[in-house]
């Protein structure tokens, strides 16, 4: 048993178990943590397939952003879903149906390829000129040249998304007292303190 085969079995076993835990654990926070574990093992599977770029993206985007966002939402909303047996039975038929569809698709693919998976090599190296590069280098070398227009336009889309979310959520309230550092620093001794010499029984005009 080679090292890659061994690690494949380890990663896929942990993926199956942890994704099972995602949907069965009673505490939503635990679910999210198991989801993160699933993502990490998925990244491991990608590395076995020599797709290290996807592995990095999976960790950076899904674990770094999406899962943390989930965790935030779960903790902020503080909801408790009771997992009783009826609930599971209710979703069982549709889940079973989707599972059957996936399995039959897999079987059809395997029958069509006659269990000859040598074509997979084409999927790993679709373009001959990138044969000797890692796929991060391959993506980088076309992303910033041939696909520069799409790359930049995607940046514009993200900018619009940012503007949009600020426009829709930022509210300036009237009558809120805020600390203005500028005006605090601008205060001078002369403008704030006046020396008076009060006479007795007359008081001071302010």
């Amino acid at each position: 048993m080679t090292a890659s085969l061994l690690s494949f079995y380890i990663f896929s076993t942990v993926i199956l178990l942890s994704s099972l835990m995602v949907i069965t654990s009673k505490n939503p926070v635990h679910s999210v943590l198991f989801l993160i574990l699933t993502f990490f093992n998925g990244a491991g599977l990608f590395i076995i397939l020599h797709a290290e770029f996807l592995a990095m993206i999976l960790i950076i985007v899904y674990v770094g952003a999406v899962a943390v966002l989930f965790l935030f939402v779960v903790m902020m909303l503080d909801f408790k879903i009771s997992l009783d047996k009826n609930n599971i039975l209710q979703y069982l038929p549709i889940g079973f149906f989707v599972g059957v569809v996936f399995i039959s698709e897999l079987i059809i693919v395997l029958i069509n390829t006659k269990f000859d998976l040598s074509n997979i090599q084409i999927l790993v190296n679709p373009m001959i000129k990138f044969e000797n590069l890692t796929n991060t280098e391959a993506i980088g070398s076309i992303l910033y040249t041939d696909y520069i227009l799409y790359f930049q336009l995607s940046g514009v889309i993200l900018l619009v998304a940012m503007i949009g979310s600020i426009v829709l959520t930022l509210r300036t309230r009237e009558g809120v007292k805020r600390q203005s550092i500028q005006s605090q620093l601008d205060r001078k001794y002369k403008s704030t303190i006046t020396m008076v010499d009060p006479k007795s029984n007359e008081g001071v005009d302010i």
């Binding site: 889309i157 619009v160 949009g164």
Partner: peptide
């Protein structure tokens, strides 16, 4: 990409 850029602005 053009379609998404346009739609995203329109949603907002």
């Amino acid at each position: 990409i053009g379609l998404e850029l346009q739609s995203l602005s329109l949603y907002v």
